[in-house]
Amino acid sequence: MNKEAPIGIFDSGIGGLTVVKEVRRALPNENIIYFGDTARVPYGIKSEKVVRNYALQITNFLMQRNVKMILIACNTVSASARDEIQEAAGDIPVLDVISAGTKAAMAWPEHDHIGVIGTLATIGSEAYNRAIREYNGGVKITSKACPMLVPLAEEGWTDNDIARQIVHRYLASFEDQNIDSLILGCTHYPLFKETIQQELYRRKIRIVDSGESIAKMAREELARRQLLNPSGGTFECYVSDRPQRFQELAERFLGTEIPNVQIIQL
């Protein structure tokens, strides 16, 4: 496989760009292709069959672009279609945010009680619960759906009084739970990391960012396969609808300009 081949990253919309940001930080020489399925977002309200179909279409697109690795930056897809994507990808390694976040949480020396926050769909799927219990069936898990955080993130309201009040309200569920770590189970949530840290600062609770975790896993896997790119760093961005609005939000998420967002039909 070609070392200079790109890493393919995809999500149902814009949230996966927090994963892109961490991958670019951990692997600055890697070429990246990102696809956001903005025409069909959100995935969380759709059936697993439909989500799998969408995910396989995106996988096929990325494979046509000759990617050397695929990162599933969508919790809904990670929960419902990872095995099918891996089968379709063949020899191309596939990593997902749920596995990455779980592995990071379980690597922490103290992991008797893990908290998870996510969208209604992700929490309802209990995907993190299953992944954590594959490591250790005795771990206590407390989950909380935080649906308001996604629209706040897309409005850019991540560090104002409204955001702080809503984060406080959601995290109050963990006040007496004595959790050891808190998994941010949605790719929008790292945008609230500073606000969440301020809310939890009195307690020794580790925040697990699945974007950081999957970037670390990607670096380790590419190194193991001797596929690290010595010189690169390009970024291509594709969406299925509304590239102008996406570009505005994407630049907010990444903290940098994106020269061109291309629209394609799958």
Rank of each mutant, 00 (worst) to 15 (best):
Q262Y: 03
I166R: 03
P28F: 13
K144S: 07
R224G: 08
G36T: 07
I92V: 15
V67M: 00
W157D: 13
K216N: 07
I85E: 10
V41I: 15
P6A: 15
R133S: 07
Y238A: 04
P151K: 12
R206W: 01
R219E: 12
Y189N: 09
V150G: 08
D37Y: 11
S231E: 14
V19I: 15
R252E: 12
V77S: 08
D11R: 07
I117N: 13
C74L: 08
F253W: 10
E84Y: 11
D37S: 01
L27E: 05
N260P: 01
Y43D: 06
E199I: 00
T119H: 13
A153L: 13
R202G: 09
I72W: 09
L228K: 00
N31E: 11
R130T: 12
G90R: 06
T102C: 04
E87Y: 10
R82I: 04
P42I: 11
K140W: 08
A89G: 05
I45Y: 00
S12N: 06
E212N: 05
E126I: 00
H188V: 04
Q64F: 03
R130V: 14
G36P: 04
I132V: 14
T256H: 10
N29L: 00
N136Y: 02
P109I: 08
I92Y: 02
D176W: 02
S99N: 14
T18N: 08
G16C: 08
Y43C: 05
P243K: 13
L62H: 11
G15E: 12
G138K: 10
K204N: 14
I196W: 05
K204V: 01
N53E: 15
S47Y: 03
R52N: 12
E194S: 14
D112T: 12
I214W: 02
F10G: 10
I14N: 11
E251L: 07
D112E: 14
A81S: 14
P243Y: 07
S143W: 03
L171M: 12
G232R: 00
A55K: 06
N66K: 15
G44K: 05
R133F: 02
E155H: 08
N136T: 02
F61W: 09
I141R: 13
V20C: 13
G118D: 12
I70D: 01
V77D: 06
N260F: 05
T102R: 03
P109W: 04
I166V: 15
T76D: 11
K68G: 00
L27N: 03
Y189K: 09
Q165V: 00
T18R: 03
G138N: 15
M217A: 14
R252N: 09
S47W: 03
L171Q: 10
S240C: 06
E220G: 02
Q247R: 15
S181A: 15
M106Y: 03
V19R: 08
R82A: 04
K103R: 13
N29C: 02
I85S: 09
N53D: 11
A218K: 01
F192P: 03
